[in-house]
Design a protein around this nucleic acid. Structure first.
Lengths: 338, 338
DNA sequence: ATATAAAATGGGAACGTTCCCAATTATGGA
DNA sequence: TCCATAATTGGGAACGTTCCCATTTTATAT
């Protein structure tokens, strides 16, 4: 039990070099020797010491997912779980394990970054949704650690995977406008996040295209929480709106609740469009018209990109953009023509 | 850059032993030497190699969370995200990092266990909800790896944290019965999971207490998915029910949908009680009466227990049971007295 | 059968830490 | 001033792998 490999070597009557070769499926081991070693491993329940291995190979076979502080509270949103699951499954396919870092608002940002960075037990990192000037990102730029950002690329960030937020938001709002809604508002995410700004920009784009001016009082801000959607919708109701584009399904749910309580019917009185196409969007009442995000593909693509980076495979595109699309259900489409 | 420690040692003009002492905050280093070493570390951006450290100390400072195959699909249920978040935050407080293993139904169970077990980059493991005869659990029993099970203790498992599922399910169903509902049914989780059986047992307990017999046709089975709740409820409607205890809020949501589509009012025609007290339970329409699970506490307790185990701290209780409680909202309480 | 090439094996130096123990230096009391 | 003691430092052997070479064995061609 002293030196793991050497115990096996002794049992099988070979050198530790040979045992190492067998373990790593390397060639140049005769069939009979390999067999003998395999049996020795079997009977002794030996398991290679990964730390020792990592020490010499300089790789761990582990990927990190980082969900920064700012959005950690939003972990109730099914978006992150879905993303994590997709990343995890893809990583598993390639025999990578996953480390998870969830931002802790109680901890100062610096210490949090330090802890991640000094951990050192992973080969690369996927940052799921970053805030502007994220300190982690700043520390990463110029470091040799491979990483991929999920979300709109920021300055200096070399690799990212995102959805065409702006274009599809544009599409969604255009749909609302084309249905004849007159006072189309929006509930945004926090504007210090690139995603939120992209989606808001799409909202403006739609108005610009039609030549109709935007009523700035119909732009309400949320933080991707259900309750923030509720609050924002309450404001919009006061200001008079007949259709609202929400930057997330979760906020749309909050908006729906506000409308119900105000005894406004959806979509007869107010139409609603969400963003994400979370599972509950299809089963809410009424079923939510929303933008379908290819979350699975997002996670899979980011993971594959990161693995390519780690393993030195050639990279075609540095900034990938996946396409989302509008799914029409029942929360819009019945505009009362004024 | 050759030997990390030695580079620093050279810059600071000391031995690597001393540098090691400084890094690990050990005593017996003079103030001025420590200062000099700290500066050397600062200026060179040196970061200790964790693999080397783990090799000699035989610990990694990493905890694993395992969500077995059987429930991986259920990852859409906010229960797991909440649990993960709680575990992660608690672990962080103690300077432990987290590895995440999500069961992959595409992979054979054996290989999946192997991958986890041979990874070896963690000091202990939290198993979140296990299936009967979970192969991972079987491999763990008798191994020296510390682990804690979240859920009802199984044979051989030495440490677990759970909620008093049976007692609180009993309470919930008794509440329904005491309100005068005549045909109280239940939608269970998959019965090869201990949790599901505990909750079902609580349902039986309530009837036993009142002396009323259970109508077995009112016991429908789901798998914790929204859609399975929908399907089960459809069956129960056919069979005639006026109140249903659901083993999860997510299934209750599905049940709600089925009732809505059948034009049955809640709670006037059929009452509903959920389980979990997920965020959406408070904001659903109508707000869901449900059992509040202390998920945060569950995660925190399990994590603290595991860390005690790892660090050899004394353990008071091997099997901890936290108490859940019923939260009355609006989906029951208006029984039509027959 | 022999020479030569190819395949299989073994030995041992890294990898970058920690930690024990020996050696050195500082401290304090007589 | 000097000795005993305590505090500080340094040296070097682990830890368990991988991987480069050198060596031995086996296969192949003449």
């Amino acid at each position: 039990m002293n030196h793991g490999l050497e115990t096996i070597a002794e049992i099988a009557g070979v050198s530790k070099s040979t045992v190492s070769r067998v373990i790593n499926d390397q060639p140049n081991v005769s069939a009979k020797t390999r067999q003998r070693v395999l049996e020795a491993i079997q009977q002794s329940g030996y398991r290679p010491n990964q730390a020792a291995r990592a020490l010499v190979t300089r790789q761990t076979g582990v990927l990190s997912i980082v969900i920064p502080q700012a959005v950690a509270a939003t972990f109730t949103d099914p978006y992150f779980p879905a993303l994590i699951q997709s990343i995890t499954l893809t990583a598993n396919e390639h025999n990578y394990a996953i480390m998870l870092w969830v931002g802790n608002n109680a901890e100062e940002e610096e210490r949090y970054c330090d802890r991640i960075l000094k951990n050192g037990f992973f080969d690369g990192m996927i940052i799921a949704s970053a805030v502007d000037n994220d300190p982690l990102l700043q520390r990463l730029v110029g470091s040799k650690l491979p990483y991929v950002l999920i979300g709109p690329p920021q300055a200096q960030v070399e690799y990212s995977v995102d959805v065409d937020n702006r274009a599809v938001a544009h599409e969604a709002v255009s749909h609302l406008l084309s249905l004849g809604y007159q006072r189309v508002g929006t509930i945004t995410g926090p504007l210090h996040m690139g995603v939120s700004r992209c989606r808001l920009q799409g909202y403006y784009d739609a108005f610009e295209q039609t030549g109709v001016g935007v009523d700035e009082t119909l732009v309400a801000h949320g933080n991707y929480d259900e309750s923030s959607g509720y609050t924002a919708m309450t404001t919009l109701i006061e200001r008079g709106t007949d259709a609202v584009f929400c930057a997330s399904d979760t906020m749309a749910l909050g908006a729906l609740r506000a409308l119900l309580e105000a005894h406004l019917r959806v979509p007869e009185d107010v139409a609603l469009v969400g963003f994400d196409d979370m599972p509950f969007a299809a089963t809410s009442h009424p079923p939510l018209t929303t933008v379908h995000q290819p979350i699975d593909e997002l996670g899979r693509t980011a993971t594959n990109l990161l693995i390519s980076l780690i393993e030195g495979a050639p990279i075609q595109t540095h900034h990938l953009v996946l396409t989302a699309h509008l799914i029409i259900r029942h929360t819009c489409g019945a505009a009362k023509i004024a």
